[in-house]
Simulated assay, not measured.
Amino acid sequence: MYRFLLSRQWVILTLLALALIPTMIELGFWQFHRHENRIAHNQRIEAAITAAPVPVAELTSPGRTVSDDERYRRVTAEGTYDTEHQYVVRRRTNADDQIGVHVLTPLVLDDGTALLVNRGWIASNGPQTRLPRIPEPPSGEVTVTGRLMPDETTAKSGIKDLKGLPEGMVMLINGTALAEDIGRPVLGGFIELSAPEPSGGTPQLLSSPDHSGIGAHMAYAVQWWLFTAAVPVGWVILVRRELRDRAAARAQEQQAAEQPPATAGV
């Protein structure tokens, strides 16, 4: 009764079903792990931005790479802004997705090293082929608080480091690349300023990182596992349908064989 399963068509169909089951199980676990990683990522951000701020020198130094665990950590620093080596970072958006620039100003610390401070966003006021008017930072000794960030690279950010830009304009925030121009050792990474608030509201301080969403990875995982369960169920349904069709065909053949032949007219 089940010999049809040995036919070429049914062997191929069965092998395909057997191949799909582990593949879709693995895809489900892949999405599940992405869900777990997203939750861990959000928890890492929450812990970093809610922790008490520490002096920046405890987490970074010239030539040091800011790790993922240190990203978004709140830090404090005391020093004087170096407005002679101020930069704007091209093609950056604000919370309303308006295109402008970020204002990047070195803060010279007591030991002579510099910390790059992203003071926030300003409108570019036209094509970004010339420097916009940059609001002045506070003068004299200041204490700042901000979120520690790793140096930006093309590999990690996807932003091309264009050449031939106007003087004082950059594409990436990278202390190693700017150290020679600044003329002093620059701490690894930079900070996104969170305090004090700028006078007049400009530059606009950057928003805290959004860490509320977890995406649809868990829903995708469940979806793949439901597909996995549907494969053997579908295979059984097809087998039963084939059995039913074959039984109906045999009954029809038997009925035709038992029916007496029609009598020819005289």
Rank of each mutant, 00 (worst) to 15 (best):
V170W: 00
R246C: 06
I39F: 04
L148W: 00
R71L: 04
G164Q: 13
R74M: 13
R240H: 04
L165G: 04
G168Q: 02
I159C: 04
Q259L: 15
T80R: 13
L116W: 03
G120D: 01
T228C: 11
R250V: 04
N174E: 06
E242T: 08
T60D: 00
G265N: 12
T143M: 07
H102F: 15
M169D: 02
R184M: 01
T154P: 03
R91M: 09
D161R: 10
D151N: 11
L172R: 03
G79C: 07
Q252A: 15
F29N: 02
E242V: 12
G146Y: 01
L148I: 07
I214A: 08
S208H: 15
A77K: 05
M218S: 09
S67M: 07
H217M: 06
Q255P: 08
A155L: 08
I99L: 10
L193Y: 00
T93E: 05
L15E: 04
E70H: 09
A77D: 04
I99Y: 04
G100F: 03
T143V: 10
Q255L: 10
G126Y: 01
P132G: 07
A251C: 03
R119W: 04
V66L: 02
D151Q: 04
M171D: 12
V66D: 00
L162N: 13
G265F: 10
A95H: 12
A77I: 06
A123N: 15
R250T: 05
S7I: 03
N94I: 05
L20C: 09
I39T: 12
A249P: 05
A17S: 12
A95D: 13
I25F: 02
R44I: 12
E136L: 14
F190Q: 05
R73H: 12
V54N: 05
V186I: 09
A57F: 01
Q31V: 09
E180A: 15
P196Q: 13
E197I: 13
Q9W: 02
R74N: 13
L27W: 06
H35G: 05
L6S: 07
S207G: 11
L16R: 00
Q9R: 14
F32N: 05
R34T: 04
A114Y: 04
L115I: 10
Q204A: 14
L13G: 11
L104N: 02
G200L: 13
P198V: 07
T50N: 14
A48N: 12
G188A: 06
L178A: 06
P260E: 02
T202D: 12
G213R: 15
T50A: 10
L165Y: 01
D110T: 14
M171P: 01
R244I: 14
D96R: 12
V108S: 07
P53T: 12
E242D: 07
T80H: 11
L162V: 14
